[in-house]
Write a protein that binds this DNA or RNA. Structure first.
Lengths: 137, 137
DNA sequence: AGGATAGTTTAGAACTAGTCTAAACTATTG
DNA sequence: CAATAGTTTAGACTAGTTCTAAACTATCCT
């Protein structure tokens, strides 16, 4: 996402059929301004308020889900009762730092699946998530 | 887990330092009686009530967590806001049937990681989860 | 065996993340 | 610029889970 220049956020929203409202633009800026990020709804909400963007929690959730559906974000589930949203939508995997509750991308192709199982009949693979759970050593 | 004969449930509980109470024995029986299972707290609760084992939801949660800590169960996180417990504690991975909310073991070594990334310095790998998310095709 | 003790269970309150609702607001379209 | 359709919002609500403090029970000790 960081590939795209700042000014095109508006265009990207339009492309995916979302009106470029004040809130969405502001949140998109927070999310995509600098590099890859992994945020929870609460985190983004706090950040928005600190940045003087008064936005309701409901809108945070709406926006995160709409962005996800539109392919601008990817949801990552690693902890019960908390969702993370990843601004890196390319095919990649994660470290999850369990003590801290922090996600980190595993760069490039450092994880490679030698073999994938055939999906049960009548089903198709939608996505493969690899989570490497780490701890302070 | 199904390796162990039924009568040894009591011993297993003792081994891991949990008193073999009526509730724990009954839940262990439900969990480990026939083969590998993936249950949520609510599912197990319903099952227990149907089997005429009146047990409170709090005890279900306590028991699932104690069993997990003791290594009799393994917790699998695939959906926000819902935890699954797997009676198969050996090293293996999962299909997750998204429409139905059902986990299924990927048999044997059908998933092999060709390369694992080095964990960030100061950390050690605790576990690697591979979740193959599937959909009806 | 019987009582003391420490671990366990329980109902229900409390909590947390997330969703819903319906009214107010705003971007777009003509 | 008005009409309209999509968006935002506060606050009520829900689902899953955890907490609490009182009642209960397995175990230990004599």
């Amino acid at each position: 996402m960081s590939i795209r220049p700042y000014s095109s956020l508006l265009d990207r929203l339009k492309e995916v059929g979302l009106r470029p409202t004040r809130q969405r633009l502001a949140l998109a800026r927070l999310l995509f301004a600098d590099g890859d990020r992994h945020v929870t709804a609460e985190q983004l909400h706090d950040e928005a308020l600190k940045a003087e963007i008064p936005v309701s929690l409901a809108t945070i959730y709406n926006t995160l889900h709409q962005f996800t559906k539109a392919g601008l974000l990817r949801e990552v589930v690693v902890e019960p009762g908390r969702s993370y949203f990843d601004t890196n939508t390319s095919d990649h995997h994660h470290f999850f730092h369990e003590e801290v509750g922090q996600l980190e991308d595993i760069p490039g192709e450092q994880v490679r699946l030698a073999e994938l199982p055939a999906p049960p009949s009548g089903t198709a693979i939608r996505r493969v998530d690899v989570i490497v759970r780490i701890r302070p050593s």
